[in-house]
Simulated scan of single mutants.
Amino acid sequence: MLHLTLRNLCHKSSFFQHNLQKGIVAKLKVISVQNKIPRRLYSNTQDNDQYEQIYFGSLAPQIKAVKIFSLTSSVAGLMAQPIIVKQASQIGSTSLLVIICSMVGFFTFITPLLLHFITKKYVTEIHYNPSNSTYKATTINFFLADKELEFKCEDVHVPDIPGMFTSMHVKGKPLFIEARHFENPLHYAKIMGYDKPMDFKLGEVQDSDNNNK
Rank of each mutant, 00 (worst) to 15 (best):
I83A: 11
V75Y: 11
S70E: 12
A88Y: 02
N19A: 12
K64R: 15
Q206Y: 02
H181G: 01
D199Q: 03
I24A: 15
F182A: 08
V158R: 07
V33E: 04
N212M: 09
V85I: 05
I84A: 06
D195I: 12
A80P: 02
Q34I: 06
T124W: 02
K22T: 08
Q34R: 14
N132V: 07
G203Y: 00
F56G: 06
F117W: 15
K29S: 04
L115W: 01
F165M: 08
A60T: 15
V66M: 10
I84N: 05
V98R: 00
T138R: 09
Y55K: 01
A179T: 11
F142D: 10
N212T: 14
G105M: 07
E150A: 11
A88D: 01
I83Q: 09
K36G: 03
P159Q: 11
P185F: 05
M168A: 05
A26I: 09
V85D: 00
G203W: 00
K121C: 10
L71T: 03
L144G: 01
N8T: 10
L59I: 02
D47Y: 08
T134M: 00
Q81C: 00
M79P: 00
Q34P: 01
D47S: 13
K201H: 15
S95T: 09
F142S: 08
R180E: 10
F16G: 13
D146M: 13
G77Q: 10
F109M: 13
I31A: 02
L149P: 07
R40P: 04
D207F: 06
L115T: 03
A26G: 04
D47R: 14
G163R: 15
R180P: 00
L4D: 13
Q87L: 11
V85S: 00
K67G: 08
S74T: 04
S131K: 08
I37L: 13
N211F: 11
G57H: 09
V158C: 05
N35T: 14
S58P: 02
Q206M: 11
A26D: 09
F200T: 15
S131T: 06
A65R: 13
K201I: 05
P174E: 08
N8D: 10
S133I: 01
M103T: 12
M198T: 01
A189P: 00
E204F: 01
Y128D: 03
A179Y: 07
F56R: 14
R39G: 04
A60I: 12
L9T: 12
Q87S: 07
F143E: 03
F182E: 06
F56Y: 13
P159A: 08
T72R: 12
E204L: 09
I191F: 13
F117Y: 14
E183F: 10
Q87E: 06
I24L: 15
T5A: 04
Q46N: 14
F106W: 03
F165V: 11
G77R: 03
G92W: 09
F15C: 11
D207P: 02
L114M: 09
T5S: 05
N8C: 09
N184G: 02
P130Q: 07
K196V: 03
T166I: 14
G92I: 04
S131D: 03
K196Q: 06
G203T: 01
N184R: 12
G105F: 08
K22G: 05
